[in-house]
Every structure is written in C-alpha cells, then in structure tokens.
Amino acid sequence: MTLHAALFYILATVTAISAIGVAVTSNIVRAATWLLFALASTAGIYFLLGADFLGATQLIVYVGGTMILVVFGVMLTASGPFVNMKVGAAEWAISLAVGLLLYSVLAIVLLQIEPPSRNIPPNHTLLPSKHIGAALLGSSSSTPEAKVTGLRGGQFIPRTRVSYLLPFEIISVHLLVVLIGAAYLARAKRRREDVA
C-alpha cells in the first residue's frame, strides 16, 4: 500500500465517521464538533488531491469562519445547556433505510463511470495557486493546453480557453448583498413584551 493510499484511507475514515456522527447525534453541540472534524479532514483530502490553495481556503473560511458562525448560532438559540430534540425510532428507521438506498444507488451509478484517461500534457505539474488567481483575474492564458476527453466515440476536441473574472465579480457582489441582508435580518429587535 502506497503512502497516498494509506493517507487516503485514514482521512476518508475520519471524514466518513465524522459525517455519520453529525447525522446520528441528537445533541446539537456534539453535531457541531463532529462537523468540525468532518470539515477539517475534508481539507486534508483536498491537500491529498494536490489542491493546496483550496485546502487552505477550506481551513480558513469553512473551519475558521462558517463553523464559528454555526457555533454562535447554537449558543444564541440554546434554551438549556444540552439541547436535545429527540426523533422517534420509526423516523430513524425510515431515514436509515432511505439513506442506505440512496447510497447504494449513488454507488452503483458511480462505479459505472469510466475513469477519465489521464492525458497529462508533457509539461504539466501540480497546478500552482497563482494560476487560480490569474484565472479569477480574467487571464485565460493559464488554462492548460489540453483536449476534452470522455466524449462519445473517442473523439478529442481542443478545449476553449476560459477565464473567470465575471463569476468572481458576481460572487463578490453576492457575498456583499448577503452579508448586508444577514445584518439587517439578525439585528437585535426589541421584543413586543419588552415594549409593553
């Protein structure tokens, strides 16, 4: 077993156990902790796949930012130290059955996917993060020279060079609008009882 395989199995086990923990625990604080581990080990998976910038982003934005938001949400809405909202056994059985069915359908479909043939260009190395930045700034020269594979009949067409300046701008404005909206929605309002 290679190092890559060993690391993959360790990280995948941690990710899967944490994800299952999020789903099965009924204590919301424990679910938040399981989610923290799931997100952090997913960042490890990204590092393993050679997406180092993405792994760092996942750690900073997701684990550092979004999880803090969620934990604050848990604390601000807790009516006691341990919030337990139990779900009945019949509902558990149904959801377990649905989950297993969904997973087996997904697994059967995915295992039929033909893995893409790795047509690596001769000078292709790991994608440095500066290429991501260049693509987000509108330069299409960083997209690798390659042909699109996986088409029917084994034909190859050269790919179009693309850049992502417009989606980047749209998502920045979207984030700004969403944050203003969230601040407006969540601002402290005086309750009706306090006024009376």
Binding site: T15, V22, I28, A38, V98
Partner: peptide, 16 residues
C-alpha cells in the same frame, strides 16, 4: 457520496 448521503439524512431527521 458518503458525505452527501449523511447530509441528506441529517437534513431529514434533525428537528433543530
């Protein structure tokens, strides 16, 4: 797929 299915089950069963 494991992450996806766990998320779906979590969305369906959590009351919080």
């Amino acid at each position: 797929a494991i992450l996806f299915v766990c998320g779906i089950v979590c969305m369906a069963t959590k009351r919080n």
